[in-house]
Nucleic acid binder design. Structure first.
Length: 633
RNA sequence: GGGCCAGUAGCUCAGCUGGAUAGAGCACCUCCCUUCUAAGGAGGCGGUCAAAGGUUCGAAUCCUUUCUGGCUCACCA
């Protein structure tokens, strides 16, 4: 419709305006609620060209268009805005064509290039938490939205299964796990604890123990006792302690933090963990066995969580397998002069010309860092999927800088596809003021499993209170509670613009009224119940549309362009808001107009077909968010 | 200190390729179930769009500066 008008204006530009106008001058917007019309053209941009008042310009353009286009039933001009009223026949024909199209809004399947969407990417040393929920829901949804846009999509993750942090939980388990009467240390089997939770318990334990040890070391230093520490350490710490003299509180805090870091690195626990990492890289059999065992506990736990989340992956990558390729790439780049080596043997890239810093890509002992492994993973993926056009990394915005650098390095290494890679950067999920930050090590996280369980419980309570669940089997009821609870949680985390942070208050559990998942699900269930009662639907003859019906049709017509926008912007939030808007329009209609009870059969059928298509789009849009909708609730 | 992001109603958020009187939900106050699911609908209350300049016929939206908050600049990931 917009395109038709635009086309006519452009093609008749000379006749209308005296010379060719720029396409950008043609701006449409929604007609204000209190003004008559369905579509509005902004007249101001043409006023200069036409050299007349906005009112005259609007009149001129309006009459010209109304003459040429029969879907324009009438028009009016109000203070620089030309408002068109679109004919009922046009909207009814829209309804018919939407109704016929089962995949309404979707682009042709596999018509666009393959993209890879990376999301989740957990560390195998702790369970998933609320932040991971946002990540997983976002990544899954963006992948689905891209599919709807015609892309082939590969869902993937990089499992962070190696590194010093993994060794920490391994070491802590080996050292601090109690031994039972059978002489076994704690396992998921003999404790009944979920695997990832058990591993996470020892990650926290490591942190606790080594903080204790670090404190003891600092106390020693403060007594000026530097026995058993290297001269370098002693000199540095002495210098730091001396520098505290005469400084203000904040500065002293900063210096103390530095001293603490040094102390942590001097703990026997940390040294043992480092040693374990070296053993692991050397494939020491005992260390490897422990690593495999504890990782497998984690994976078993993750599987349960992923299943509850309703997300899936096409292909997994493991850091333990890609970091070597990364190291090779760095050494290759070193030969080419892209990287440089410092005296201590560490390898860096100089990005100061790009306004960034120097960045480490390989440690002095030759081991890989985060960046090394990410380089390897990216290249690995392109060799696995040669037709890949780009990778979308769903990772929190705290890593904005990392990805800027990653893409830049890939480009410098000569990979053209680097420019098609993007970072789907999302805001942190924060706890309300005073509740601190979520930190796994400190045990201040909102656990993913617990949260999902809680929300499903509260959905159960609400559904038993007011739902329509008579005649359902226990199994069906449980499915429904789950569907409502998870729908609420997903919608809550996806309706916010990805790049914005979310403040989550665990004490006020998630709202299920208002702009929420269940609100949308409820409307869907209500429509389904209507349709079920109506029996067979037939086509309708010529009818007159009410305002409420036109509003819905206008909104429905925009679904395809919304899917395109959501795809372009990698934003499920756009779809969530669109659906919310649609549901509000429908509820208003439902409340004020008879549907089943309408006596005129054509009208009844038209309203039922309209309802059926609203349900279809609700279902479709919610599915793109990873949310299911019920037939009854 | 450098870089990036955010600041809209008491709270949580839309709106941001410049367009008409800035919109929702929650909370608070009124109404509406002998019409199809009230997890709903209608209405009310509530705003110096962080602040100040600038560009423009027109600025929450663009530019500059300032303030506030977050993240980041690690031989952590």
């Amino acid at each position: 419709m917009e395109n038709k008008i635009k086309e006519i204006l452009l093609n008749n530009s000379i006749e209308l305006f005296g010379n060719q106008v720029d396409e950008k001058l043609i701006q449409f917007q929604k007609t204000r609620k209190d003004v008559e019309g369905d579509l509005t053209l902004v007249i101001f941009p043409f006023v200069k060209v036409l050299r007349c008042s906005p009112a005259d310009a609007g009149e001129k353009i309006g009459s010209f268009l109304a003459d040429k286009l029969d879907f324009i039933a009438s028009y009016n001009v109000v203070s620089g805005f030309l408002n068109f009223t679109i004919s009922g026949e046009y909207w009814l024909s829209q309804l018919s064509s939407i109704d016929k199209n089962e995949e309404f809004g979707f682009a042709e399947k596999d018509s666009k290039p393959t993209v890879m969407v990376e999301y989740s990417s957990p560390n195998t040393n702790k369970p998933l938490h609320l932040g991971h929920l946002r990540n997983n829901f976002l990544g899954y949804s963006v992948a689905e939205i891209l599919k709807a846009n015609g892309h082939k999509v590969v869902k993937t993750q990089i499992v962070n299964d190696r590194g010093i942090h993994i060794c920490k939980s391994m070491l802590a388990w080996e050292r601090f796990s109690p031994v039972n009467e059978n002489g076994e240390r704690e396992t998921p089997d003999n404790t009944g604890i979920k695997g990832d939770k058990l591993v996470g318990k020892y990650y926290v334990e490591f942190d606790k123990q080594y903080n204790i040890e670090a404190k003891e070391i600092i106390a020693k230093w403060e007594r000026n006792n530097f026995d058993s520490f290297s001269d370098d350490v002693a000199t540095e710490v002495k210098k730091l302690i001396a520098s505290k003299e005469g400084k203000d509180e904040d500065a002293i805090k900063g210096i103390d933090a530095k001293i603490k870091d040094i102390a942590k690195n001097q703990t026997s626990l940390m040294n043992d963990a480092k040693e374990m990492l070296i053993k692991w890289e050397a494939r020491d059999p005992e260390t490897y066995l422990l690593w495999t065992t504890m990782n497998n506990w984690c994976y078993a736990g993750f599987d349960v969580t992923y299943k509850a989340m309703g997300v899936d992956f096409d292909k997994l990558y493991y850091e333990s397998e890609t970091f070597i390729l990364g190291r090779d790439l760095v050494l290759e780049g070193l030969d080419k002069g892209i990287f440089f080596k410092k005296d201590d043997g560490s390898v860096w890239i100089d990005l100061t010309d790009e306004g960034l810093d120097e960045k480490l890509v390989l440690r002095s002992d030759g081991t890989a860092v985060y960046m090394t492994q990410d380089l390897g993973t990216a290249v690995d993926r392109y060799s696995d999927y040669p037709d890949l056009s780009g990778i979308i990394y769903t990772v929190g915005n705290e890593q904005d800088y990392h990805f800027k650098v990653l893409f830049l390095i890939l480009e410098k290494l000569g990979y053209d596809w680097a420019k098609n890679c993007s970072h789907l950067s999302y805001g942190m999920v924060e706890l309300p003021k005073g509740m601190g930050r979520m930190k796994s090590r400190e045990g201040t996280v909102v656990d993913a499993d617990d949260l999902m369980e809680d929300i499903v419980d509260s959905a159960k309570e609400m559904t038993q209170e007011r739902g329509h669940i008579d005649g359902m089997s226990e199994d069906e009821k449980d499915k429904l509670y789950n569907l409502i609870g998870m729908g609420g949680l997903k919608y809550y985390l996806l309706k916010v613009d990805p790049k914005k942070k979310i403040v989550f208050n665990p004490n006020e559990s998630i709202e299920l009224n208002g702009n929420t998942g269940p609100f949308i699900q409820y409307t869907h269930a209500r429509i389904k119940s209507l349709i079920a009662k109506a029996g067979e639907l037939s086509m309708f003859g010529d009818v007159e549309l009410k305002l409420e019906e036109t509003e819905i049709l206008k909104h429905l017509s925009q679904y395809p362009s919304l899917i395109a926008d959501a795809g372009k912007n990698h934003s499920p939030a756009l779809l969530a808001n669109y659906t919310y808007e649609l549901v509000k329009l429908y509820n208003h209609f439902y409340q004020s107009i008879y549907i089943l009870n309408e006596e005129n059969k054509d009208l009844r059928m038209m309203r039922l077909v309209l309802s059926r298509n609203v349900a279809k789009v609700i279902n479709s849009a919610m599915n793109l968010l990873g949310i299911n909708v019920p037939e009854k609730m």
